[in-house]
Nucleic acid binder design. Sequence first.
DNA 1: ATTCATAATATGTGCGCACAAAACATGTCA
DNA 2: TGACATGTTTTGTGCGCACATATTATGAAT
Lengths: 232, 232
Amino acid sequence: MAEARRSWREVRDAIRADILSGRLSPGDRLPRDEDLARRLNCARSTVQRAMQDLSQAGLVERRRRGGTRVRPDPVTRATFDIPITRHEVEARGARYGHQLIRAAELPAPPAVVAAFDLHSPERTLYVEALHLADGRPYILEERWIATRTVPEIRAVDLTRISANEWLVLNRPYSRCDLRFYAIQADPRVARLMGAAPGAALLVIERTTWIGSEPITTVRAITAPGYQLQTRT
Amino acid sequence: MAEARRSWREVRDAIRADILSGRLSPGDRLPRDEDLARRLNCARSTVQRAMQDLSQAGLVERRRRGGTRVRPDPVTRATFDIPITRHEVEARGARYGHQLIRAAELPAPPAVVAAFDLHSPERTLYVEALHLADGRPYILEERWIATRTVPEIRAVDLTRISANEWLVLNRPYSRCDLRFYAIQADPRVARLMGAAPGAALLVIERTTWIGSEPITTVRAITAPGYQLQTRT
DNA sequence: ATTCATAATATGTGCGCACAAAACATGTCA
DNA sequence: TGACATGTTTTGTGCGCACATATTATGAAT
């Protein structure tokens, strides 16, 4: 059948076409790598490379000894890049600025303790700040920082560098949970954001850990009209 | 120095630690794979595997002949799985239902033509449908389907299977653009969703193509309180 | 100085091999 | 029957090699 050697992309595309065209259905088992390699006239490592890609894309599931199966519930998998807010603003060609609204050492409220996956209370630094693009409100962030994990943050001048930027640059994280939802601007948020009271705002919530130690959780309230889109 | 052979994960973690700790700064160039391999006591292919991972995670950028550099603008990269709505509802333990509100062949409005990256007008099937969880509104979708690319859709009984599910199962796509934002429910949407007028709703907009041919663009308006989160 | 062909170099791909590790199957023993 | 050890199967990892490919650097010719 096939004569020319196939590249891993060709192998991937061939299998993907089989799945997407319905020749393979969700839940179906695929031949083992070695058989596919023989059939497609390539090395097993090439099939492996193709499968690695398909697996990461969420199209197939692989298990040792269990073989490879078409994912039973097809999904659309999307990847987003969330940059440092300053970079995001500057990439839009706007002038970046930020205002520290409040910084205070507080015990973590129950919602934050829950977000951190903890039971016991946690000492936190609460930081509220407004990111500006060309002087106009861009993102309002309400942030809790676990001072036990990040004690140095207390020595940082948060009027000079935003907690967002300092943390991303200085605190590696091993786990990051993200959540998106919509809220209506309450009077206070509306005033800070220069939005109409009741306006619909996209919220990006992010919590990070290093190992099992919580670092920070932040509620980023975006300005009216803000859109988040997949990288191209 | 190092004696034990390193696995690609160890190599990846070592390099990642160098980046995140600041020993390597954004924009810095890394040694070439071969030197890293010698230094870390492993094969070049192992370094290659580690770099592949770091590159996909957005931590480094690699170019042939240009070498490897730490990405100049650090980002948080997040991956979402957007399942078929029926699966999503059922995974929450709820009973799925859906109602076809309207289906009509219409010329694509300008916004849709733009979303499809086209200039000329396009014949579309407009479909409006409501997805239900336990009988309650879950997602309202407004969808335009390019009938030139997907003529078979006209023969599908959209009261029996949702356009969402039919398309995902029958129409492979090669490109998918996603966009999230918040809207306020206008009176009609509020009535359909059983929400208060003016409620903040998360909208997921998705456009797919096969090759350069548009398939569909959909505006999925979610019920109040809907949250989208990264897969765990 | 500018343009263009050419060389040098780092990453990307592919192969074949060997062994590791997970997960499932089987059979033994109580 | 049930718990547990053992074997088998499939994917995962690692190595070393050769060559492909993209990109930058070099230098010649105008």
